[in-house]
Amino acid sequence: MRGVEQAARRAGYGTCIVELARPDDVGMAEAIGRLARQPVVGTVIIAPLTPGVAAGILHSAVPTVVVGAGTFGHVQVPTVDHALGARLAVEHLLDLGHETVWHLSGPQDWQQARHRADGWRAALRQAGRRIPPIMLGGWGAESGYEAGRLLAERADVSAVFCASDQQAMGMLRALCERGVRVPDDVSVVGCDGIPEGEYLTPSLTTVRQDFDALGRSCLTTLLATIEQRELPTAAGCPWAVPTLVVRASSGPPRSQSR
């Protein structure tokens, strides 16, 4: 949102932010209705798209950009390469010597979560490693805490890739409460690159997403649509490339007994 707002201001536009009360057809209709009562020339949507919402966007007269939601006809969809980010995390943990990597996913109605899970599976499959059962969760710390409580009871878990840094924060607390040392007993890698991750104990290894650049890309794409001009082919549906930031929460497996 910050990247969108800054780019809009530089282009001479103001922004109006409407938070969804509920991420479904009803909530989206309410949000779009609020915007329609204002002099809005374009919208940027950061939310999971249900079929009903997608159909409504396709029939909307207002130019729209959807962040990381897949392809919906003429709707532009700048996004991060989430599958690549997951592969970077898994390959890092395998290179450290872990036999396999468990995964706590985000909500399955978010395409970002599905892509991260796909990247996790693909990396393990390519390395010829066992693919553990996926753990389904939300984006928040509570989800990571609950998953961490379960994983702390398993002696066969030595590495976990969390779909968000917030999940990883909750997992670190759950493991610590149960005497599981990170990274000595279990390595934890998050995803998103939130600034707070550097100041956790241990500091969090993460896959960093350049959200500011993604926001700027959204606004560039939206303005091109509003002004009815073509974007260069390479930028028609731009991908932001994630990077791995290695910190203290990941390390080689030192002990298999807890």
Rank of each mutant, 00 (worst) to 15 (best):
D210S: 02
A127S: 05
G144V: 07
R149Y: 10
T205F: 08
A163M: 08
R154F: 00
Q209G: 07
E198Y: 13
C218R: 00
I194N: 05
C218F: 09
P183N: 00
L136I: 15
R181T: 12
I134P: 06
R173P: 06
T220V: 12
G179C: 02
A168E: 04
R178Q: 10
D210F: 03
S158Y: 10
M135K: 13
V157Q: 11
G197C: 03
A174C: 05
F161Q: 03
A127G: 08
T205V: 04
D165R: 02
L172E: 02
A159D: 01
A147M: 14
T201C: 13
I134R: 15
E177S: 03
G138Y: 06
Q209S: 02
R181M: 05
L175H: 01
A152I: 10
E177H: 04
A174H: 07
P183D: 05
L214V: 12
T205C: 07
T221H: 04
Q166I: 07
L204F: 03
C176N: 15
V160F: 05
S217Y: 08
Y145W: 13
S203Y: 05
G190P: 07
A168M: 06
E142D: 14
T205S: 11
A159Q: 00
P133D: 09
P195V: 11
A213T: 12
R129M: 03
R216E: 15
R216D: 12
V160N: 08
L219F: 11
M169T: 14
L204E: 01
R181K: 10
L219S: 03
G140M: 14
C162A: 06
V182F: 07
G138T: 07
